[in-house]
Deep mutational scan, measured.
Amino acid sequence: MQRVNMIMAESPGLITICLLGYLLSAECTVFLDHENANKILNRPKRYNSGKLEEFVQGNLERECMEEKCSFEEAREVFENTERTTEFWKQYVDGDQCESNPCLNGGSCKDDINSYECWCPFGFEGKNCELDVTCNIKNGRCEQFCKNSADNKVVCSCTEGYRLAENQKSCEPAVPFPCGRVSVSQTSKLTRAETVFPDVDYVNSTEAETILDNITQSTQSFNDFTRVVGGEDAKPGQFPWQVVLNGKVDAFCGGSIVNEKWIVTAAHCVETGVKITVVAGEHNIEETEHTEQKRNVIRIIPHHNYNAAINKYNHDIALLELDEPLVLNSYVTPICIADKEYTNIFLKFGSGYVSGWGRVFHKGRSALVLQYLRVPLVDRATCLRSTKFTIYNNMFCAGFHEGGRDSCQGDSGGPHVTEVEGTSFLTGIISWGEECAMKGKYGIYTKVSRYVNWIKEKTKLT
Rank of each mutant, 00 (worst) to 15 (best):
R3N: 09
V4K: 12
A9L: 10
A9W: 13
E10G: 11
S11D: 02
L14N: 01
L14R: 02
I17F: 04
C18Q: 02
L19G: 01
L20E: 01
G21S: 11
L23H: 02
S25V: 12
A26L: 03
E27P: 01
C28N: 00
T29A: 05
V30T: 11
F31A: 13
D33T: 06
I40E: 15
N42K: 06
P44F: 03
P44Q: 06
K45M: 04
R46T: 15
N48K: 08
N48G: 04
G50N: 08
F55D: 05
N59P: 03
L60N: 15
L60Q: 15
E61I: 07
M65R: 05
M65G: 03
E66Q: 09
E67G: 10
S70H: 12
E73N: 13
V77C: 15
V77S: 13
E79V: 09
T85F: 04
Q96T: 05
E98F: 10
S99R: 13
P101T: 12
G105V: 03
G106K: 04
G106M: 05
G106T: 05
G106E: 03
C117M: 01
W118S: 13
C119P: 03
C119S: 03
F121H: 08
F121C: 05
F121K: 09
G122N: 09
K126L: 13
L130S: 10
L130F: 15
C134R: 02
C134P: 03
N135F: 13
I136S: 09
R140G: 08
E142W: 03
F144C: 00
C145V: 02
D150I: 08
N151C: 04
C155K: 00
N166G: 03
K168W: 13
C170L: 00
E171D: 09
A173E: 09
A173Y: 09
P175W: 04
F176V: 07
R180L: 05
V183L: 08
L189R: 08
E193I: 09
E193A: 07
V195L: 12
V195R: 05
P197S: 08
P197T: 10
N203M: 09
N213P: 07
T218F: 13
Q219W: 11
S220C: 15
R226E: 07
V227M: 09
G229M: 13
E231D: 09
A233Q: 06
K234Y: 13
P235K: 09
G236P: 04
F238T: 05
W240L: 00
N258K: 02
W261D: 00
I262T: 01
V263D: 00
A265S: 11
C268K: 01
T271Y: 05
G272N: 12
K274C: 03
I275A: 03
I275Q: 02
T276M: 05
V277W: 01
A279D: 00
E281T: 11
H282Q: 11
I284F: 10
T290Y: 12
R294S: 01
I297Q: 06
I300R: 02
A307V: 10
A307D: 08
Y312E: 03
Y312K: 07
N313R: 11
L319N: 00
E320Q: 05
L321C: 02
P324K: 09
N328S: 14
S329H: 05
Y330L: 08
I334H: 00
I334N: 00
A337G: 07
D338P: 11
E340D: 13
Y341S: 14
G351T: 02
Y352W: 04
S354Y: 11
G357T: 14
H361W: 05
A366G: 12
L367C: 08
L369Y: 08
Q370C: 09
V374C: 04
V374N: 02
L376W: 10
R379Y: 14
T381F: 15
C382W: 02
R384V: 13
R384C: 07
S385T: 14
T386P: 08
I390E: 10
Y391E: 15
N393K: 04
M394N: 11
M394I: 14
C396T: 02
G398I: 06
F399W: 14
E401M: 05
G402Q: 06
G402M: 13
S406R: 14
Q408G: 10
G413T: 13
P414D: 04
P414C: 15
E420W: 14
G421Y: 04
G421R: 12
T422Y: 05
F424R: 00
G432W: 05
E433D: 11
E434Q: 05
C435S: 06
G439D: 09
K440S: 09
Y441P: 14
Y444K: 01
Y444V: 15
T445A: 04
T445F: 04
K446S: 14
Y450W: 01
Y450L: 00
W453D: 00
W453E: 00
W453M: 02
E456L: 06
K457S: 14
L460Q: 15
